[in-house]
Nucleic acid binder design. Sequence first.
DNA 1: AGCACGATTAACT
DNA 2: GTTAATCGTGCTC
Length: 208
Amino acid sequence: MPRLTRAFFDRPTVTVARELLGQRLVHVVDGRRLAGLISETEAYVGETDLACHARAGRTARTERLFGPPGRAYVYLNYGLHWMMNVVCERDGFPAAVLIRAIVPTEGLARIRANRCGKPDKILADGPGKLSQALAITGAANGLDLCARGAALFIEAAPPAGVVVTRPRIGIDFAPEPWRSIDWNFIWPAAPRRTAQQPPGPRPANEEE
DNA sequence: AGCACGATTAACT
DNA sequence: GTTAATCGTGCTC
């Protein structure tokens, strides 16, 4: 499947957040693909969105948000957890989609190791967890997901179909209407479990 | 220069 | 349900 292009991200952030459900987030680490299907996203849209980091205006931290679409905005939250976002909309307008959950599909052995052997059900069902699972850190901040040869990118996959919306998580500090607007998107029919390994010889890039 | 607080997680009771 | 872990950021003094 081809990779999503810059044109995909150069659209309204809410649209991108919806359509990212079902698509495949891939991080190539040491020549090995670590990947999963995106199952939950959130939209953060502009300086007027008082839940968005861009509410602080253009600063050193938010520079990526204001930049061109298709790049990663990765920041550390609570001093512990890396949050993986994809910048959306035109250069100069600050907006991004936070990827909040994925269903791991490739590189399972490495992903389990990155997650310290935790049960498969909770390998990547949170924004901090999926970053740990795919080994995404602040080093990825600003990377162009649409560049040729990028190690971090999103591949096209069948669309999610039915999508459920609800208010965004963890932004109780924000005033209305931002606190309650339905900018969290979930793919309820996402595969619950990680696919089993196919029978026969394993791919060359699958470990142990 | 100092401070309060997160777009969270895991391990508790 | 409660709480510790842990640090970059933006704001105040």
